[in-house]
Design a protein around this nucleic acid. Structure first.
Lengths: 147, 147
DNA sequence: ATAAATCCTACTAAAACACTAATGATTAGG
DNA sequence: CCTAATCATTAGTGTTTTAGTAGGATTTAT
């Protein structure tokens, strides 16, 4: 039960984007700051753009900026943009009908459904702006525990 | 963000074990009933045994039976037995210290932690007996929706 | 002894993940 | 117009995880 690096990278990158006071920021800069692969990040940003989370400007001096304000971008938006639908178990995936053909395999389907809804709700109710303020708080009061 | 087949198989198999009124049941029978690989299931049951969820009897007429009563076996117990610790993101894994070295990579760590705790609690508060009764309920009132 | 069962471990095919690389499209500045 | 910076897109690749196979060792009822 894991989110992949994609979600984490995307969130880190967006936070980085927010942190710069510039209107926009180039991938090169983000990738440099976070020490991530520029090409890999680019793929993620492609998805973020398709999802309407960022807008891109091409050419010299171009880059990305947020397409919406912080409050209207949820963590769920970001995650689903780069990782696809959240399904705690494969059989919840509506796309692939071939799962869950066997009733007894999915005795626990209701359980997974509830769990999944819960996770989704939690991620949905958390905005990028929540993340930012939480991070600022943490920075000014780093409570011992190593990060 | 997925649980693997292991967790699902283990739960299905244990439900099957509960469903039989016998004292114990052989892997062959479970595997046959669920149409799963006997060898693969065996590996899962090895973990379930180590976790103290089932007990085994070797030799002719042997098999497995629950080591505890239904109420004291949580879904979390089962999942962690066959899939290991639940960590929604790798950086929550206490074992591998090499994760999370970079603070800015883990801006969202607090978020993941909360999310993870939530998932864990939910799975912990659900027992095998809850699953069984939910399944029985569902059987006598299948509500339209294809499983 | 034999057959039925668990125990244990090593191996393997397929899929997912995390990139790399290369090439094309667009645009600002000189 | 030319060039360099930047995004856009797609193909390929090494590593890890997952899901399963295979086979021998051990135990035990008959």
């Amino acid at each position: 039960m894991k989110l992949t690096t994609r979600g984490n990278y995307a969130i880190s990158a967006l936070m980085e984007l927010v942190a710069t006071k510039e209107q926009h920021i180039s991938l090169k800069q983000i990738a440099g700051d976070l020490d991530l692969s520029e090409n890999y990040l680019r793929q993620l940003f492609m998805e973020l753009r398709k999802a309407g989370i960022v807008t891109s400007v091409r050419g010299v001096g171009g880059g990305y900026f947020l397409a919406k304000d912080l409050e209207s971008i949820s963590v769920l938006d970001i995650i689903t943009a780069v990782e696809g639908e959240i399904n705690v178990v494969p059989c919840l995936d509506e796309e692939s009908e071939d799962n869950c053909l066997r009733t007894d395999q999915c005795l626990a389907r209701n359980v997974w459904k509830k769990l999944n809804d819960n996770v989704v709700n939690q991620l949905e109710s958390l905005s990028l702006s929540d993340l930012v303020s939480e991070f600022d708080l943490e920075k000014e009061n780093p409570n011992g525990k190593k990060l």
